[in-house]
Computed example of a mutant assay.
Amino acid sequence: MRKDLFNLGPVFGYFFRKNDPNRPTNFNLRTMHFINKLSLAMFLVGFLVLLYRWFIR
């Protein structure tokens, strides 16, 4: 079994990384990253709501 299968470091690093001056930026790329972050955050909130409904109520 691979040890790095459940490595979530890159996922959290995606949210909290700083801007790299060597990477090109334009409106489309910034918009894509914003939509990706928003969709991941919405998924996590929905998942937490499901966990709350299953285990707390």
Rank of each mutant, 00 (worst) to 15 (best):
F12Y: 04
F12S: 02
L38Q: 05
Y52L: 07
F15C: 00
V45H: 02
N28K: 12
V49W: 08
F43D: 05
L48S: 06
V11Q: 05
Y14A: 06
L5R: 11
F16L: 05
N22K: 14
N22I: 10
N22C: 11
L50S: 08
L40R: 06
F43Y: 12
I35F: 12
R23K: 15
G13S: 01
L5S: 05
G13C: 00
T25P: 02
L8Y: 07
F27L: 13
F27V: 14
P10W: 01
M1C: 09
Y52V: 03
H33S: 12
R2T: 03
R53P: 04
L50M: 08
V45M: 05
M42R: 09
N7E: 05
R17G: 03
R30K: 15
G46F: 02
L51G: 10
D20V: 02
G9S: 09
F34P: 00
N19S: 14
K37N: 08
N19G: 11
M42G: 03
N7F: 04
N28H: 11
K3P: 03
G9R: 07
I35S: 10
V45T: 05
I35C: 12
L40F: 07
L8T: 09
G46N: 03
F6Y: 11
N22E: 14
P24Y: 12
H33V: 14
R17I: 02
T25E: 15
P24N: 14
F27T: 14
F15K: 00
L40N: 03
I35R: 14
F55Q: 07
L29Q: 13
L8R: 08
M42Q: 09
P10A: 00
F27W: 12
L29S: 13
R17L: 01
S39G: 04
L5P: 01
F43L: 11
F47T: 06
K3L: 12
N7C: 01
R53L: 12
P10Y: 00
L38R: 07
L51H: 08
Y14E: 07
T25K: 15
F12L: 04
H33C: 10
L40Q: 05
N19D: 15
V11S: 06
R53C: 08
V49C: 08
W54R: 10
F34W: 11
M1P: 08
G13H: 01
I56N: 03
F16R: 03
L50I: 10
N28S: 13
G9V: 07
L29A: 11
F12D: 00
R57D: 06
K3E: 12
F43P: 03
I56C: 01
T31S: 13
L29H: 14
Y52F: 09
R2L: 08
M42Y: 07
L38F: 14
K37D: 04
K18L: 09
Y52G: 03
Y52H: 04
D20S: 04
L8P: 03
I35K: 13
P24K: 14
N7W: 04
W54D: 09
R23G: 03
G9L: 06
S39V: 13
N26T: 00
R30D: 13
F16K: 03
L29Y: 12
M42N: 06
R2H: 06
F15I: 01
L38M: 09
V11R: 07
S39E: 11
I56W: 07
T31N: 13
F16I: 03
R30A: 15
P10I: 00
P21Y: 03
N22L: 13
N7Q: 02
P10K: 01
N22D: 15
I56R: 05
D4Q: 05
N22T: 14
L48C: 06
K3A: 09
